[in-house]
Structure formats: structure tokens, C-alpha cells
Amino acid sequence: MAILSTSHARRVAHHSVVWISGVTLAAFAVVPLLWGVSTSFKREADVYGFPPKWIPSPATLTNYLSVVRDPALVHEFVNTLIIAGTTTAIALVISILGGYGFSRYRFRGRDTLLWTVLLTQLFPRVVVIVPYFVILRNVQLINTYQGLVMVYLMVVFPVAIWMIKGFFDNLPKEIEEAAEMDGCSLLRILWSIIIPMSRPALAAVTMYSFILAYNEFLFALVFTNGLGKRPLSVGLAFFIDDTGVNWGELMAASLLMSLPAIVVFSLAQKLLVRGLSEGAVKG
């Protein structure tokens, strides 16, 4: 009995330690977000109120409405969709072909090339910013969608090809071999066997690639000027009007921008962590 109750007491103590520690961490994680949410529903007059109030009263949707109706923000959002969408589509095609090549064939230079791809993913991006600028200038693609897509391909493609190769490695080869014997062409095999079999993984890579391009800031900052072609990330860094920063609107806009990213990462979390870490751990 004595042993039982001490072990029970221990369990309770252990559980409460875990709970306290978890709650502390979760509070640290969500306070900045919750405060942003709270501010985004406040009237401009209440934003600076002291003492700080967590529940806005009255709550208002004004900030969200003016953000959605702001022509500049809408324009930047459309820019982001065009740039990130095009980048993702091209990167996906390149990565499916390349990933299949790396996964199914052994050829001279394979390992070297594969590692080169990984290394480029790990190199600090700032390093290539000057040559990118000069290249884009020379082909006159500064401040264009095409220019940013070109640059973003390099951001997205190394991760995408590694993840896709990893997923293809885990697919059974037998079906392809049977199809090949029946005289199926390679493109046919890819299109009607490989792609349907790896649909969830490809969906994850697609979403991740999209979000990578969606979130990118540095290249967009340097390679665009003015409102014309700049994406939302740059827009939100310069979201200041003549009266200074309107915090309610800035929080509403930032949260709206975060929403797709939060959804994607939460849905594909396991696949992403596996894909990202496997790429770095295994050859």
C-alpha cells in the first residue's frame, strides 16, 4: 500500500511538472499571436488603452474590412499568388523529373550532384544577392514576375527535389517494372503510376514550396521597386501610412497573411519534418 501511494504521488507530481512546463511554453508561443488577434479586433481609439485589455470591447471588424479593401494590399496579394504559384508549378515539374531520376537510376556523378543540390539549399542566400541583381539587370528582369520566379525557383527547388526523391525512394518498384515490361513509356509511367501513388507527398511538397515562395522577403525586397510587382511580404514590411503605423490594420493584415501558412504547416507537419531532416541526414 505504501509503495503504491508513493508511486501514485510520484505520478501526480510528474504529471503536474509536465503540465506546468507545457503551459509555460504554450503561453510563450501564443501570447504574441493572441495579442495580435486582440489588437486586430480593436477600434483605433482602444489600441493604446491602458491598462492593456485582452478582450476587445467593443470588438470591431473595421481593421479587417479596410485591409481587404485596401487596393495596394490586394494588389500585393495578387502579385504573391502569381509569383508563388508559377514558381511552385515549375519547381514541381523539375523536381518530379529530377527526383525520379535520382531515385531510380544509378549513374556517374549521381551522388556528387545530389549533394551539390543539398549544399545550395544550405548556403546563405545573401551570398548570391549581388550576382542575382547583376544577372536580372542584364536580362532586364528586375521588377518583373519572371525575374522573381527565376530567383524563387532556386529557393524552392533544392528542398522540393530532395523531399520528392525521398518519397520516391520509399515507393515499391515492382509496379513500374511490370509497366515497363508491358512497354509503357517513361512519361506514361510517371504520369499514371508514380504521380498517383505519391499524391499525398506531392501535395505536401506543393504546399510547402508555395509557402516558401509566399514567405520570402529578402529577394523580393531587393529585386522589386515600388508597388508594381512587389509581393505581400514586402508590402507588410512597409505598411505605414502618413499617420504612422496603424497597429490594428497591420495586425489584421499580418494575421490574414499568416493564415494559409499556418494551415499548410499544421496539415503537413509530419511529412515536412521527415522530408527536411531525412534530406540532411541520409545520402
Binding site: 508561443a29 514567405n215 507588410l236 494575421l255 501558412a261
Partner: peptide, 12 residues
């Protein structure tokens, strides 16, 4: 809840 900060875009 702890995963949330990682999912938010850097500019946000």
C-alpha cells in the same frame, strides 16, 4: 499551440 510560431511567415 507550441508549433504555431514556426508556421507564421517571418514578416508577420
Amino acid at each position: 499551440l507550441c508549433i504555431l510560431p514556426w508556421t507564421v511567415p517571418s514578416i508577420a
